[in-house]
Amino acid sequence: MTQVEADKDSPEYWLDDHGGALYRYALARLRDAHRAEEAVQETLLAALQSRDRFSAHSGLRTWLIGILKHKILDQFRRDAREIPLDDPDPGPDDEDAVVASSFRADGHWSSRLADWGDPEASLENGQFWVVLQRCLDLLPKRMARLFVLRELQEEATEQICQEMAITPTNLWTMLYRARMGLRQCLDRNWVGEARG
């Protein structure tokens, strides 16, 4: 044990002091309680094994979140590669219903898109987040997870981009459908409502 480790940062307190925060961080991204629990466990185990590399001035929470970020990125990669039976991978040409109904045969939008006005104002409204969660829940689980993770990945974009180019799944198609689906869902359940 090294002297950099202050008492309050001692591993026996990690779970009590940081477990909740790690869990919420993971849950916000993985959208699945079980996966989030696993990510927390993997993170703390990895941290325990490499605790000699922790330097106190970076802050324990920051260090643990950094490890968790890597675990979540791994999950994204696994998700992007594996094709679960209950959430099949879309072929590039088989249209989903939302996309099909959004465009005419000649490739034009089938109707004028609603003006979302000042969408930032929605962010102030508590009800908006309820609707957004519900819209996300309507997407296939893996699609929603990949979309959320993708939009939240601030770092390593170039690396991810190169990886995406060689994934065997139609990641771009899935992300496109996620956007089209969410857009339509918000159009119907939020923008329409807000306008009366």
Binding site: A21, R24, Y25, L27, A28, R29, W109, L113, A114, D115, W116, P119, E120, S122, L123, W129, L132, Q133, F147, V148, E151, L152, R179, L182, R183, L186
Partner: peptide, 22 residues
């Protein structure tokens, strides 16, 4: 409009995560 909406969805996802984690 679609482009603005797509950008907004990205912002909303980041804020949604921040709300959950904090």
């Amino acid at each position: 409009r679609f482009e603005r909406q797509v950008r907004f969805l990205g912002l909303a996802m980041r804020m949604l995560a921040r709300r959950t984690e904090t």
